[in-house]
Design a protein around this nucleic acid. Structure first.
Lengths: 130, 130
DNA sequence: GGCCATGGTTACCTTCTGGTCAGTATGGAA
DNA sequence: TTCCATACTGACCAGAAGGTAACCATGGCC
């Protein structure tokens, strides 16, 4: 996503997919659904994402109207990220994706170490090393 | 997707996204929800997709259990692609994505030339040149 | 033998995405 | 005066995804 808001696809599905299918976006949104977070919080909640990429994904979602960024001009700077109404409206969609993801796992492999669909323990994930 | 079924993500949302977010997959699925199609049909229904990529996307979806491929050993060969039960179970999910895509367009730009969410006129698309 | 249709595959290239690592700015604390 | 925390930014790179164009195989038809 080089330049800002370079026109999104005109097919609605494609558009939706384009907007949410960044490598980390759904996971970041999960965290934000839970309430506003500052960058440093997100960094510790999602330690596997490098700072640059985290900011990148947040900015893209901001451009696409899913996320709001608020700057507090403080001594050590402070920036809060939160979902917009539009972003929040994605919750049921993402949940249905999540449910389907579990169904998919159940139908094919067994759903061995698949996580739950509710705000997941993205970080506390021992499955990582399995 | 170089090698077959190289393990899907263990986060359910990511898994679902991985499986459906190929450049053309949702659109191809739309066509298949409508009933089985042979390759040549899909090629004319979706003229903007090159044959190689079309087959590629179909094969990936086959690997992921969304699509069934049936070969009829005939004079000029015939191959039918259809959705599996698992693939079909994606319909509501994709529809919700589509609905959200339209909402997104409505909230940001105006939804100018956005298509409908029902089986769309993917080919008869004058919006292309706009 | 040459041609056709169907359904592929292969080689090659370009673009997009994500990733690492190092650097920047601000202003208070030590 | 140096150090620290926070929130970024930029150079660079590697791999994946998607695209183009050309070629292959089968077997009937003329």
């Amino acid at each position: 996503m080089a330049d800002p808001m370079k026109r999104l696809p005109m097919q609605p599905v494609e558009r939706a997919l384009k907007v949410i299918s960044g490598r980390w976006k759904a996971i970041i949104l999960y965290q934000l659904f839970d309430g506003p977070k500052r960058l440093s919080e997100l960094k510790t909640l999602l330690p596997r994402i490098s700072q640059k990429v985290l900011i990148q994904q947040l900015r893209e979602m901001e451009e696409h109207g899913l996320v709001h960024r608020e700057i507090f001009r403080q001594v050590p700077p402070r920036v809060d990220y939160s979902t917009t109404a539009l972003g929040l409206s994605l919750e049921p969609v993402i949940r249905s994706l999540c449910d389907w993801g579990r169904k998919h796992a159940a139908d094919l492999d067994e759903l061995d170490t698949l996580s739950e669909c509710r705000l997941p323990p993205v970080d506390v994930r021992a499955a990582e090393m399995a």
